[in-house]
Design a protein around this nucleic acid. Structure first.
Lengths: 164, 164
DNA sequence: TATTGTTATACTCTATAACTATA
DNA sequence: TATAGTTATAGAGTATAACAATA
């Protein structure tokens, strides 16, 4: 049953929710399409982006990606099969594995990142120059609050470290 | 190679792109989590949302969802197996099939839609009341331009018909 | 015992290609 | 022939549960 709230959801709020949902589909569509052009899923692209400045273990990767460790095993298997990443033994802990970006993976992620930025800048072209900072601020407000509430590492996002 | 543009991407543009990408992940995360709580994928949820006010054929559904017709066959198979939708013969064309929301499917999509709206209103709570209309307008600008460029039916979005 | 990671298994999602039935 | 839809097949992605190796 829909809970009866003290203050019902306003039409303006619904408009905002609707617009933001549709924008999110547009953005994810660009990401998915560009990734697919290189035979990557969005998850694989996120994986490569995370590895740009880190050599995490499997559990850490699972946490960053929001996946089970067994799912990450398969993900790394396939990426390693394409020579995009490599597994190396962890220095001290004999059980551990460190995942590293291979040269081909690094070239690929840099290339896709450039394309993503170019296409998203084009997608967002209708936003007047004078409103861009405001849009950034509003989106950042929302994301930061959510990250704080869920204790999530923001830098695990696709583009957080992608900007030059 | 990254193309050398006349006007290079500004830091403000990069900030905007970054913020919008992260917001899109946050929104999709809410959608995916709520859908999963009812054993739905985002695609299944979109399917049910589309069927709220339409009884399309398989090809039309494929176009709305951006999938191959064979993918839609499987999607409908599984939804029909859960008694969420039904296939009925098209009136005139003996080859056609119309997909209809079953009672259980309608109950489910209404329930999830209520939850989606509630959670996204909560997610967007940090946006000051005075800025909501502006955020709606900016997001709508972007989405409308994209829809125009790609000749896409906006009402196929998850929430376009979801609002009361 | 606890932790790190892999393997076995099962299911959804998606695509391509071949097929059936109707137009 | 062309169109609407299904089926066969293959692979990615994901999860749960059981396992192995190390701490």
């Amino acid at each position: 049953m829909p809970e009866s709230e003290a203050r019902p959801t306003s039409a303006a709020d619904l408009d905002m929710v609707d617009a933001v949902v549709q924008l999110s589909f547009a953005v994810q569509g660009v990401l998915g399409r560009l990734a697919a052009e290189h035979d990557l899923s969005i998850t694989q692209l996120r994986l490569l982006a995370i590895l740009r400045d880190r050599n995490p273990g499997m559990l850490e990767l699972a946490r960053h990606l929001g996946l089970e460790k067994s799912s990450v095993s398969g993900l790394i298997d396939r990426a390693e099969g394409r020579h995009l990443v490599t597994r190396t033994a962890a220095p001290v802990d004999g059980r551990g594995v460190l995942v590293t970006l291979a040269p081909a993976g690094r070239r690929l992620v840099e290339q896709v990142a450039d394309q993503v930025i170019a296409e998203l800048v084009a997608l967002l072209a209708p936003v007047p120059a004078g409103e861009r900072a405001r849009l950034s601020r509003l989106a950042t407000l929302v994301v930061q609050q959510q990250a704080a509430q869920r204790d999530v590492d923001l830098s695990a996002g696709l583009l957080a470290n992608l900007s030059p």
